[in-house]
Write a protein that binds this DNA or RNA. Structure first.
Length: 271
DNA sequence: GAAGACCTGCTA
DNA sequence: TAGCAGGTCTTC
């Protein structure tokens, strides 16, 4: 579930909780595939007794740089989350110095922890992070014009721009009044400008609101403190099929675009 | 592109 | 019980 704003929220809260600077005393891997291709034993041995130096985010990756020189790269995929308290579905637990423990929770078991010598091996496959200065209007416009693909799957492609997922892609397209199936090279300058700004905007507001949690169940995204993300109230398109558009009152449609649930206003967002 | 795989749990 | 879910990877 986590996209850029949710991962950024987690990184900030882990720093606020003082996880940086702590030594990893012990490691418990409850679902070995989490650390594949390493075995649980090798992974644990490699990181034990090193200190977590810095926690940061790139795209949807959460990185922990270690005093050993290696880096743990966590991808939460659909359902990963962190907590400072134990709970159901904890797939990996780090016991840290001074009595702190870090619980990695993941009901669907899709999330992955990679231990790497050089994060660039993975990060170099990503496009620019959507909230950095490297993601420029010029780069975005040029890339969209060079391709001939539907706009929604294109902005979801992490090798083009890193950070957007299904929620914020639908939100950015709604915000810029662009139909999700428009071909990328059919967008004019004004539309590209609007979409570029909308991508930055929806992600920034998402971060400010500590991410998006949908529904009321327990399988939704939770932040490190166990709180639901406050961005749900701000969502304009995602999950609102059948409800009135907040701009024009037309009933929003829900369809599938490139096999992903897609929500849009058939009136504001014309083909 | 599309479809299947990886997984569990909630909703209709 | 079937269908669907905030992601990505592999194999057509």
């Amino acid at each position: 579930m986590p996209e850029l704003p949710e991962v950024e929220t987690i990184a900030r809260q882990l720093r606020a909780r003082g996880v940086e600077g702590r030594e990893i005393l012990s490691v418990k891997v409850n679902w070995p595939r989490t650390v594949a291709p390493l075995t649980a034993a090798v992974f644990s041995r490699q990181i034990r007794e090193s200190t977590i130096e810095q926690i940061y985010r790139v795209g949807k990756w959460l990185l922990f740089s270690l005093s050993s020189g290696q880096t743990i790269m966590v991808h939460l995929r659909m359902a990963g989350s962190f907590s400072m308290e134990p709970g159901a579905h904890d797939r990996l637990v780090l016991k840290l110095s001074d009595g702190l423990s870090l619980y990695y929770r993941d009901t669907r078991k899709f999330g992955r922890w990679r231990l790497v010598d050089d994060p660039e091996v993975i990060l170099s496959k990503l496009g620019p992070d959507a909230l950095t200065r490297k993601f420029t209007r010029a780069y975005f416009s040029e890339t969209m014009r060079q391709r001939h693909r539907m706009i929604k799957p294109l902005i979801l492609d992490q090798s083009i721009v890193a950070g957007l997922g299904n929620i914020y892609a639908d939100e950015a397209l709604w915000e810029s009044k662009i139909h999700p199936e428009r071909l990328s090279d059919s967008l004019n300058d004004a539309e590209l400008e609007k979409l570029f700004k909308a991508i930055k905007h929806v992600l920034r507001v998402g971060v400010k609101n500590r991410g998006t949690s949908l529904g009321d169940g327990k399988t939704n995204y939770r932040d490190v403190e166990g709180e639901a993300g406050g961005h749900r109230a701000e969502v304009k398109a995602y999950g609102r099929g059948g409800q009135p558009c907040k701009r024009c009152k037309t009933v929003l449609e829900k369809t599938a675009v490139a096999q992903r649930g897609t929500h849009f206003c058939p009136s504001c967002q014309q083909r």
